[in-house]
Amino acid sequence: MTEETPGFEEKPDVPSGATSDDAEPAAAPAEGAAPAGDANDAQLAGLTAQLDQVRTALGERTADLQRLQAEYQNYRRRVERDRVTVKEIAVANLLTELLPVLDDIGRAREHGELLGGFKSVAESLETVAAKLGLQQFGKEGEPFDPTIHEALMHSYAPDVTETTCVAILQPGYRIGERTIRPARVAVAEPQPGAAPAKAEEGSEAGDDKDDSPEKG
């Protein structure tokens, strides 16, 4: 009868070169688990969707910024235009108040009374007005233009072919293209029924040819 040594148990025989892991059966994959390739595709799809959302938001913010920039540029142009308009109106109002003084200076110059210190002051005032953009207009002999001339006297003259300014009673003034006072003038029109001078000259030349003797 064989006696067993107490405290020792028999172990199954393990082939040489085999590890303990080989002795245990491999764990079976969990039921229902998705393959690794499908998980990567799902993750990539999620990242792509997030990227599309970011791009959409970026496009919207860029459009908002461009719209705000355009509105700001329009606002600046409008403010600048209004500022220039207000300045022109203020200058025009100031110079309009000075026109009677400039008229007095002009009359004094015509009568030879612009002398001494008064002459220096008058010339300085005219220089300042010119720097502010004030321009005088109105000359004798120029055609009458109702947009810049105001006819105070009217007559007929045989030596004019159209309504003409024959005397400047009060000069006109403008600032740029804006007329602040029309030139007040005396005008002359052609005599009623009078033929134009060129037509008369042409008819006289024709009469001379008719009266000339024919060459035999």
Rank of each mutant, 00 (worst) to 15 (best):
A130N: 13
D145P: 08
R107L: 00
F118N: 10
R107D: 11
E162V: 02
E140Y: 01
F118S: 12
R109Y: 01
R83C: 04
S155E: 14
G133R: 12
R81K: 09
E162P: 00
L169I: 11
R81I: 00
E126P: 03
E177Q: 09
H111C: 09
T147F: 02
V185N: 10
R77W: 00
F137Y: 15
V128W: 06
A186V: 01
H111Q: 15
D145G: 03
D104N: 13
G172M: 01
T164Q: 06
V160K: 10
G112P: 05
K87D: 08
A167Y: 08
D103C: 10
G141F: 07
R76K: 10
L98S: 12
D82G: 14
D145Q: 10
S120Q: 12
R76Q: 09
R109W: 07
A183I: 05
E150H: 12
A167E: 15
I180W: 01
T163L: 01
L99A: 03
E110I: 03
K87T: 15
I175T: 04
L169M: 10
K131Y: 12
K119W: 05
E97F: 13
R77G: 02
N93M: 12
V128Q: 07
A183S: 13
A130Y: 04
E142G: 00
L115P: 04
R178T: 15
V160M: 13
L132F: 13
R83A: 06
K131V: 06
S124E: 15
V160T: 03
G141W: 13
I175E: 10
A157L: 06
E110F: 05
D145M: 02
R181S: 12
T147R: 03
Y156D: 09
V128A: 15
I180E: 05
A108E: 11
A129T: 01
V84P: 00
A186N: 00
F137A: 07
E126K: 00
V121S: 10
G172T: 07
I105Q: 02
V128C: 14
A130C: 06
E150N: 13
D103E: 15
I180D: 02
D82M: 11
T161C: 00
V91Q: 05
I180H: 04
L94I: 07
V185M: 03
P171W: 03
V185G: 11
S120D: 08
A151K: 11
V91D: 07
K139P: 01
V160A: 12
P182Y: 12
T164C: 05
T96K: 13
D104K: 14
E140V: 14
F144R: 05
L98D: 08
C165I: 14
L95Y: 15
T147W: 00
E162K: 00
A130W: 07
S124Q: 14
A90L: 14
Y156I: 12
V121W: 11
R78W: 04
I89H: 02
S155F: 03
R184Y: 02
R181N: 08
V166F: 07
E162F: 00
D103Y: 05
C165G: 04
V166T: 14
P171C: 02
F144H: 04
L114V: 10
E97V: 08
E113L: 04
C165T: 15
L169H: 11
G133K: 06
V86C: 04
S120N: 15
R77P: 00
P143T: 12
R78N: 14
Y156E: 15
L99S: 05
G172Y: 01
V91M: 08
E97Q: 14
G116Q: 08
P100C: 06
D159S: 13
M153I: 13
G176Q: 02
R78Q: 11
E150Q: 09
D82Y: 06
